[in-house]
């Protein structure tokens, strides 16, 4: 039996904390133990503190019915702030379980969401693009969430 299979969870965790979010999302599929670890609120909080540049995380109920988004923020001082996003017509349509990080992009046709830090205005923005194009007629609708103002900005 390979040695790694008996590595205790706290040692696995120390390694996983050093990985970027994209790797973590992929490695949820390694085994049930890793899935539970990576999606645990404790891990997400610690990962936030470890990677201050990736300080926005989206969390969601695993295998739940509710696709609402909540946001977790850790600033450079390690102070944590957890807030639920205000409701939006599109809020419950966005399928973004698990965790995500700044400047990452998810793609769930026909919706695309992306979120990132905008240094010029010192704000985090979450972008949701809804593609309602029909028969070659391009119809994109976008909403942007701003962390500073804590609300959705409707675009068209």
């Amino acid at each position: 039996m390979p040695a790694g299979s008996c590595l205790p969870e706290d040692m696995i965790k120390e390694t996983l904390l050093r990985l970027p979010v994209q790797s973590l999302l992929r490695f949820q599929a390694v085994c049930k133990r890793w899935l539970a670890l990576i999606t645990s609120s404790n891990f997400i909080l610690t990962h936030c503190k470890h990677r201050p540049k990736h300080s926005i995380m989206l969390t969601n109920t695993w295998f739940g019915e509710n696709y609402g988004i909540s946001m977790l923020e850790a600033d450079a001082t390690g102070k944590l702030d957890h807030r639920n996003l205000p409701s939006s017509p599109m809020n419950n349509a966005v399928n973004c379980r698990g965790i995500g990080s700044s400047n990452a992009l998810g793609n769930y046709p026909p919706r695309t969401f992306g979120f990132g830090f905008v240094p010029e205005i010192n704000d985090y923005r979450l972008l949701i693009v809804d593609d309602a194009s029909l028969e070659g007629h391009l119809n994109l609708r976008a909403v942007v969430y701003t962390l500073i103002e804590h609300r959705f900005l409707e675009g068209s």
Binding site: A3, S5, I12, T15, R18, L19, R26, F27, V30, W34
Partner: peptide, 27 residues
Amino acid sequence: LNQAVADRIQNRSVEYVRSFFGIDNDF
């Protein structure tokens, strides 16, 4: 060690990581 392991698995597939740590897929 933790950093070295993280560097080695960061861009790898799920299958590679399972064999790296000797983990059985239980999904």
